[in-house]
Design a protein around this nucleic acid. Structure first.
Lengths: 166, 166
DNA sequence: TATTGTTATACTCTATAACTATA
DNA sequence: TATAGTTATAGAGTATAACAATA
């Protein structure tokens, strides 16, 4: 019966939400300049990043993967479409808003990657490539663990049928 | 000379900023209800959390530890002071706004901890307590690695003089 | 009737610059 | 002159509910 004793509180650094926030803040600060120099916001960048790996994705999938609420995504679609970076794709289900990168969008995406990759490499070097990989695995596992806890009926999240890491 | 080949892009799950964001989003969603049921926002909670471990802290320190910009912190101070959860502390330097938890603030803090700790335990159980600890260490190290990269002259961050984990 | 996405709306956080007070 | 914090302000993200269109 492990009762909590208040004078034995986990330290501030041992708070998971805060550690995640601070790590993200530091990491974001490192990469943000590369994104913003191309007049992209971080959420817009996440959408481009997600689309760069897929032929086309619908709003719901993007919202989940990029952690963006539907109303924000609507605005992002409008903005990126106006700039010619994404384009709508025809779809069986007329309710779905599917989009893909345009050639221009892909070119911009690759520019940002080329420019920021040295910083990523430098970080990987300083932190240790294997530790970075471990961290990424732990982060992804943490997310699916929490999601499984939150939605007891669903299993993991049916993005694709993947068992372990995802 | 490891040039980047664009068809060998790191996968979406291998993007550090996105993995951090998604892990944080999931974790936050788990704990937020406990915070909000006491009419606290997450930034307000971080301030209480930080103060719970210290006798008193000034605005600058809190801003850095809690990842809150000074203007936001000003409002948070005002709100928490009005609610009687924190109180200003006299200080040699009249420029500094130092605050501490009141008894009421500490009581509220401990209520939230008591209520949310079971979920934390459940998460630790499901994820593995050692892996959780590893994750926390990696996150804190990542942050100081990035900070060292960003501020080449400063060493790590002179919060306290700590060498390794922090 | 359920699902997908948009619109509307309110609120909070983010970010910068300008200002005040103190050292 | 430098530092700590506040104020002002614009903008972006967060979140909910109500609505439209499609399945």
């Amino acid at each position: 019966m492990p009762r909590i004793r208040n004078n034995e509180l986990r330290k501030f650094e041992k708070s998971l939400p805060i550690a995640l926030l601070r790590a993200r803040e530091a990491t974001t600060r490192l990469f943000k300049p590369f994104i913003e120099s191309h007049d992209l916001t971080m959420p817009q960048w996440r959408v481009l990043r997600a689309l760069a790996e897929a032929d086309a994705l619908d709003a719901k999938t993007l919202a989940e993967r990029c952690v963006i609420l539907p109303p924000s995504l609507t605005r992002i679609f409008r903005c990126l479409t106006q700039r010619g970076l994404i384009a709508q794709v025809d779809c069986n289900d007329a309710r779905r808003h599917m989009v893909r990168l345009t050639d221009e969008g892909r070119a911009l995406f690759e520019d940002v990657v080329q420019e920021s990759e040295p910083s990523y490499m430098q970080l990987a070097d300083a932190f240790g490539p294997e530790r970075l990989d471990t961290l990424l695995d732990l982060l992804n596992d943490l997310r699916s663990t929490v999601q499984t806890m939150s939605d007891p009926e669903e299993e993991a999240l049916p993005l694709r049928k993947v068992a372990g890491g995802r």
